[in-house]
Design a protein around this nucleic acid. Sequence first.
DNA 1: GGACGTGGGAGACCAATGAACAAGTCGGTT
DNA 2: AACCGACTTGTTCATTGGTCTCCCACGTCC
Lengths: 363, 363
Amino acid sequence: MNKSVGIKDVAAAAGVSVTTVSHVLNDVVYARVGVETRERVHEAAQRLGYGPNRLAQALRTQRSGMIGFISEEIATTPHAGRIILGAEETARARGYNLMIINSTSTSSQDSRESDVADLLDRQVDGILYATMYHRKLAVPKNLVGLPAVLVDSEDISHTVSSVIPDEIGGARSAVQTLIDAGHTRIGMLNNTDDVPATHSRLRAFKDTLANAGLPFHEELVQSEHSEVPGGYQAALRLLKPQSRPTAVFCYNDRMAMGAYRAAGELGLRIPDDISFVGFDNQQLIAENLYPALTTVALPHYEMGAWATENLIDAIEGKTDLHLFAAHPTALPCPMVLRDSVGSPKHKDASSRAAPDSPTHANT
Amino acid sequence: MNKSVGIKDVAAAAGVSVTTVSHVLNDVVYARVGVETRERVHEAAQRLGYGPNRLAQALRTQRSGMIGFISEEIATTPHAGRIILGAEETARARGYNLMIINSTSTSSQDSRESDVADLLDRQVDGILYATMYHRKLAVPKNLVGLPAVLVDSEDISHTVSSVIPDEIGGARSAVQTLIDAGHTRIGMLNNTDDVPATHSRLRAFKDTLANAGLPFHEELVQSEHSEVPGGYQAALRLLKPQSRPTAVFCYNDRMAMGAYRAAGELGLRIPDDISFVGFDNQQLIAENLYPALTTVALPHYEMGAWATENLIDAIEGKTDLHLFAAHPTALPCPMVLRDSVGSPKHKDASSRAAPDSPTHANT
DNA sequence: GGACGTGGGAGACCAATGAACAAGTCGGTT
DNA sequence: AACCGACTTGTTCATTGGTCTCCCACGTCC
């Protein structure tokens, strides 16, 4: 289709050999080529619109400049997009391209391995393996040993390096935001799934209360399936008049959405009667709820970028990924402040405006 | 890193030449190889875990088996994921892989062209160009002439084939759903942007009313920016007591979300007092609003799949894409029925349950 | 004994890279 | 004045992992 111009066309046009063209175009250090010849070559390449055939280049140099990206359920979560974006942008900035393969969280170990094999046949220089939510994972056998980074998941056997969100730090900031606003009776809507986030966020919740000298009440933690209906149900239980908290830390934005409805039905105004803080920063929800939801952002873009940056460093021999393999790298989850947090009405009437004490940083 | 086994390793192991290995592994028709030799080769390949080097293969055959996928703002919309998913799954089913490049809707024409050039240097066999919402587009110059399909957008000059959603049909079904439920006074919340969808959906709205013998009232169409706040504002105007419709067709789910809030503040219950139907089927919103929103789905997965299927057909010479270039292919937008549509209370008390007359098909 | 069929191999080729080497130039030395 | 060695400036050739077009060897059959 495209009668692609090759290096030999440039060579012919410039009246030199292909090797010379290769040398000048690649700025080979040890190559001694006259200035004038260099110019002739450049001019010819320019004029012909020459671009190197990356395939041939890859074959010869044993380096494809391609990174394989395996993602579970690319489509089911909007988050995946930001991981891909982070990975793609940093890859391209360094001269690499992304080859994408979709997997499913339910697919067999065999099919995962063949996904990797597929990419290996394509001679990718390294592999990024992304899951749709933070969890522990048994990596495909043929993944170990090659340059690879897990995104948003941890390798059970700790042989492959990985990058994850700092759940603890994020949850701590969320709760601290509530405390800073003057709340002393804080509830939590938690998930029922046995995933790392469930435990980390609860732990951070307890720790942060303790650090602030606040008591922990078992009945102020209500758990349900981490979707809107679950948030609604759990909030209904949590917001019963007799034991009602003045602020609620929600496992995620979807549960917060359910909680908004519960609050509405109970005649509670947000944030006057009750404050909420979510987790995930799902734009579609957090920005559009009324009032807009203060929440914790998951660093998807950053994880994609970090993973790619380090993968390429490893490919180029600048880093040894094994150094990272033992412990996943945790990236900070920044707060995004919106309108769902206010000061409690009763009790501590001391702090009305948001105090200027900074939110706890999550190192 | 991976001491990859090559065809020559297999040849040595089987005691034959590389030519023979190539012949048997590729089932070359004209190759004459004894049955027993075939087996030896297969066995050796299996045992060594041989997989062909796709790069070398591509170099020789001038066919890379790679499809370039350029997407604007991969991350900003959850829809993109479904297009990619559709494309990836059908590509893989046919032995191709996707190479992804992210672009931005604001990037210069030059940078778009260099995106294409990048892919061309990689020797992709064809290119998929996806936009994040349905619109008309000036395609990069170097895209024309090669196998390419536009996804969710149309080429201004009609030289590149494209696949888009059937806006008209989808909007028609939406309005018809309302009519079938017994509504006679129907409003619309429209977008203010000058994009194809704005005009098509409004036209379909009018046409469908006319077909049903219903009058069109100018004041029952309110337009705003197509986001939640816009929907809220427009709905506030539309739902004024004196001229209030009993059902509303919303430009998209986000505007519907805003309209839900307006209805709530006005003390209107959905769907008892007012019915809504949205557009886009943004799961996060449509499923989670209360009550869940009846809406029209955009065929993102299907467009990705269609585009890929036809692109590959073109690459393999089974189709001539030029046949499609003149007019974009429109894929149906199916209704997804949830709980936001009911029958009007006053007036026509005739039909209470949803009538069994089928929704208008959108061919 | 020549034509034909069967089984399989040699070697060019795809578009690049890179090590080794060759032709031309020039300064200095004897 | 002739020779030598060092530089400059490119070129040749092998290589990467496959594919594919001949071509060859060996039997067999008429």
